[in-house]
Design a protein around this nucleic acid. Structure first.
Length: 921
RNA sequence: AGGCGCGUAGCUCAGUUGGUUAGAGCGCUACCUUGACAUGGUAGAGGUCACCAGUUCGAAUCUGGUCGUGCCUACCA
């Protein structure tokens, strides 16, 4: 074995073997366990969020697989309609072409080509994370079988009247030329203006002043609204105003939606270009005048002077024109929420179009109930509030998109515009008994990507025709995902799955936090603070990292800022830490209900942990290969340390099981780390040395310890495997044969279960005693500046009979671990020599001073200890002096405090005696 | 405007039903290359648990408020 752990060489090696041998397929007769992957964008790249979520899903899957469940982690990718189409379109544009130029059919072909070309990257990256996904069942949302499910669901919902075509305002992206759902609109506060304009009142010499943030929409105004109770304007209700710049008179109406306090208290109403105005328009039967084109330019419904102008150019011209008419009153700076498309980033227009909708109400009710009843549980639970809040106020879902990449809507129109829905043209003709001479054309639109994602748990498992996997694995056990897609995806999956399968899609929803950078900033391209999980695994040179982070940046000053920040954060670039270290870092940070700040320092610590495991294995193998190892564990031959470590292992196994049941990966990782490093390596390995290397020990005792060293290491590897698949496999392959364990891979071995019978309280008590004495001696050595190389003689007194027995039995450990020349018990009557003193309970440990100890240093040390004890004693005594405490606190608590007091008093007396003795010198 | 979080050691985070001397890792200090490991060992230093008030014999933990901070939802033109 190498002296240090080298992850690069063995990760690919083992992954390939696991995959080739089919270990990721569900096997065995255990209870089925299933997780479906949140399908990543087929042409996307792995980011930290993926890394985090896949680390968790893989830990769960490997854990349950080892526990004997028939485990399936279902893999697949998403066609990601808008995102993917945009990438291909951008490539076309860069080449001087456009999607319109190549036409729909060829464009879609080009997207498929792009999918073939880049679609392997993300799946390759998932493999690098060690994910035990069943690749033989890989699915894609646009696979034939999954597309069939999409079609069936659409048709069934339509036939049931739950999908309908509506003409209403939608969020329109004027760059992508498509409708998008509410969820795809990001509203952020931006600096804008509030323009005050006057509209002349018909038949009067006065004007009415309105305030607006969007002057250009006045071309589509069909009313002005005031509050019915507004004394300033009450008399104008029912009158008309002349709409400036347009040859139109519009009414003044009253509606209590109007806020009297805001602006002038008068609102212009543009039903075609504002959601509220649209609703108000409906209430007052106002005319709806659309003044925009698909690209958000002014259309032919507006006065000629403005036709063809872009919306923002039109705004300038309108403001100028109103000004020259003397109707511009003032312009105030104003902060407002600007809706932008989450993909395109352009300002979204409310726009009147025909779109397809899902009538969501009847689907939402059972989906709410499923969570209310606890059939589906969110972890952490408070996300349920978010879910309920949205679901109880849910709006119909606009599912059509004016894109080319996606599932084409299975609807046909005849020349009169009648709609027919079916799986293809011929079945539509049959279904609706249409004559052959009627011409049909298919709807041009495709479905929202989330429509197919909503069917993901059952479509990937073969529903409805190939039901073997569906029947076995559905409902799935847990969904692991981010809170950002609770509405997009989780809620819709619950609704669609309940509707079509009658089952919930999953029993638990584990919501992960967002992965942020080390300063708590969101990772984003524009901030240039992205970390690529693969770079953390393999390492990356500083210059390459800077290049990567600044490649697409146009502005030099931003580029420079990112470069500086990157140089500061990673002066040496990033060394590769390996997959196991990355995964472990995610677990350690995965406390529930909290975003995680990714700290590379922690990852380095876990890389070191890998190395620790590696070297522990080297030690064990060095001391067991070609040596006598007991065939089985015989407690009669085991040392007290052997018994202790086996017992401690049980506690760890129990902690692990509890943490995993609660999805507390942070607690689990800490328990494992603590056991392996602090108990196995720091203590047990050291305690094994005097047994293995002591000539006077019987051979069968050494053989027993060798067995225990191997056995506990082997079990620890299994305990660790779901978190660190690679290193545990590599080491296990070397350790298992020493124990004659049969099996081809650790990942198919049973998971260690807690066994109360194997807890050895007696051994734990003895070792705690031993540790206490050793630490006390070491502390004296360290504080008295005694060279670690120097053996010392130690006196000990205040021993009970049991202590004396322990000293007889385990003294050889003390000699080795505290580097002692000798240790002797001092009789009760013996006068102790001047010495440095340490206490462990009632036991006094004396290191005689003879030239070793500096009197002043010891005095200072004692005084420090004494003052610590006095403080301690003060607070304990205060409690015990409080009558109310004595009468109200539970007896156990009072007893405990009394014990504390006694102990502190004894210790104090002992130390004070020492101090007196010292001062007498 | 409503809702949900968070504020514990220099940094990143634990702290279960109120009872610990408030913990871990990284970083820091001192000493040490001892036959697994310097990606290491041993021993340490470091916290008025954001602030205020209350409940209680007892509060990091429960209640109310204040401040700071992050996010989500909402129709203020």
């Amino acid at each position: 074995m190498e002296k240090t752990y080298q992850p690069q060489q063995l990760e690919d090696h083992w992954y390939k073997i696991w995959e080739e041998r089919g270990y990721f397929k569900p096997q065995g007769s255990g209870d089925p366990y299933c997780i479906v992957i949140p399908p990543p964008n087929v042409t996307g790249r792995l980011h930290m969020g993926h890394g985090f979520q896949h680390a968790i899903m893989d830990a769960l899957t490997r854990y349950e697989r080892m526990r004997g469940r028939c485990a399936l982690w279902q893999v697949g990718t998403d066609h990601a309609g808008i995102a993917t189409q945009m990438v291909v379109e951008r490539k076309l544009n860069a080449a001087g072409s456009s999607r319109q130029e190549v036409g729909r059919e060829d464009f879609v072909k080009k997207v498929w080509d792009w999918k073939e070309e880049s679609g392997g990257i993300i799946t390759q990256q998932l493999r690098r994370m060690g994910s035990s996904l069943d690749w033989s069942r890989e699915r894609f949302t646009m696979d034939e079988q999954l597309s069939k499910v999409v079609e069936k669901v659409f048709i069934d919902l339509y036939d049931e009247g739950l999908i309908y075509r509506g003409n209403r305002l939608v969020n329109w992206d004027p760059q992508l030329h498509t409708a998008i759902s509410d969820l795809e609109v990001i509203s952020e506060e931006e600096d804008g203006h509030l323009w005050h304009f006057s509209y002349p009142i018909v038949g009067e010499d006065t004007v009415l002043t309105i305030a607006t943030t969007r002057p250009e929409t006045m071309l589509g105004d069909t009313a002005v609204a005031v509050h019915p109770e507004d004394e300033r304007y009450k008399h104008l209700i029912g009158k008309e105003v002349d709409l400036p710049l347009c040859d139109r008179r519009i009414p003044v109406i009253a509606d209590d939606y109007v806020d009297m306090e805001f602006g002038t208290g008068c609102v212009k109403i543009t039903p075609a270009h504002d959601f509220n105005d649209y609703e108000m328009g409906k209430r007052h039967e106002l005319e709806v005048i659309n003044i925009l084109t698909d690209d958000a330019s002014i259309n032919e419904n507006a006065p000629e002077a403005y036709q063809g102008l872009d919306r923002f150019d039109a705004r300038k011209k309108i403001v100028a024109d109103l000004d020259s008419l003397g109707l511009l009153v003032k312009i105030e700076p104003h902060k407002l929420k600007v809706p932008r498309g989450d993909r395109s980033g352009v300002v979204i227009e409310p726009y009147l179009t025909h779109q397809w909708y899902v009538a969501i109400q009847s689907l939402a009710e059972p989906a709410i109930k499923a969570v209310e009843d606890g059939d589906i549980e969110f972890v952490p639970k408070n996300w349920e509030n978010t879910y309920f809040a949205w679901m109880r106020n849910i709006q119909d879902w606009c599912i059509s998109r004016q894109l080319w990449w996606g599932h084409r809507i299975p609807a046909w129109y005849d020349e009169e515009g009648n709609v027919y829905v079916g799986s293809d043209e011929s079945s539509v003709r049959e279904k609706y008994s249409l004559d052959a001479n009627i011409t049909l054309r298919q709807d041009e639109d495709v479905l929202d990507t989330w429509f197919s994602s909503g069917l993901w748990t059952f479509s990937t498992l073969g529903w409805p025709d190939d039901r073997e996997y569906f029947d076995k694995f559905h409902p799935t056990d847990v969904l692991v995902t981010g809170f950002d897609i609770i509405f997009f995806w989780v809620a819709r999956m619950i609704m669609m799955t309940l509707k079509f399968t009658g089952e919930i899609p999953f029993k638990k929803v584990y919501i992960t936090g967002l992965v942020r950078d080390e300063h708590g900033q969101k990772m984003s391209k524009s901030k240039g603070n992205i970390l690529d999980p693969i770079d953390l695994i393999d390492g990356i040179a500083l210059e390459d990292l800077i290049e990567k982070r600044t490649a697409d940046m146009m502005q030099t000053h931003i580029k420079e800022k990112i470069e500086k920040h990157t140089r500061d954060s990673f002066p040496e670039g990033i060394v590769g830490y390996g997959t196991d270290a990355l995964r472990y870092t995610f677990y350690s940070l995965a406390s529930t209900g909290r975003d995680i700040k990714f700290d590379i320092g922690r990852m380095e610590g876990f890389r070191n942990f890998c190395n620790k495991i590696w070297n522990a294995a080297r030690y064990v193998l060095m001391n067991t290969e070609d040596k006598a190892v007991a065939n089985s564990i015989d407690l009669n031959h085991c040392s007290i340390a052997d018994r202790w470590i086996m017992s401690r292992f049980q506690h760890t196994a129990r902690a692990m099981a509890e943490a995993m049941a609660d999805y507390r990966f942070d607690i689990a990782s800490q328990a494992l780390h603590e056991f392996v490093w602090n108990e196995y390596c720091d203590w047990y390995v050291e305690l094994s040395k005097p047994v293995l290397w002591n000539e006077e020990k019987k051979p069968e005792e050494a053989a027993a310890s060798r067995r225990v060293l191997l056995s506990v290491l082997e079990q620890s590897l299994r305990l660790l495997h779901p978190f660190m698949p690679f290193i545990t496999e590599e080491v296990w392959q070397k350790v298992a044969p020493q124990l004659d364990i049969e099996g081809d891979s650790i990942m198919l071995q049973p998971y260690p279960e807690f066994d109360a019978d194997k807890v050895d309280t007696e051994a734990e008590t003895h070792i705690e005693w031993l540790k206490g004495i050793i630490v006390a001696i070491r502390t004296i050595r360290s504080e008295m500046d005694v060279s670690p190389a120097k053996s010392i003689s130690v006196l000990i007194r205040g021993l009970s009979d049991e202590d004396q027995n322990r000293l007889d039995n385990y003294g050889f450990y003390l000699q080795k671990l505290a580097k002692l020349e000798s240790i002797e018990a001092l009789g009760a009557g013996d006068e102790p020599p001047p010495a440095a003193t340490g206490l462990f309970g009632d036991i006094e440990i004396l290191v005689p001073m003879a030239g070793l100890i500096d009197v002043e240093a010891e005095r200072a040390r004692l005084e420090k200890e004494i003052s610590k004890l006095q403080n301690n004693l003060k607070s304990v005594s205060a409690k015990l002096g409080n009558e109310k405490f004595l009468s109200n606190a539970p007896e156990a608590v009072v007893t405990k405090e009394k014990e504390k007091q006694d102990k502190a008093n004894n210790a104090l007396n002992a130390l004070q005696a020492k101090l007196t003795q010292l001062e007498a010198l």
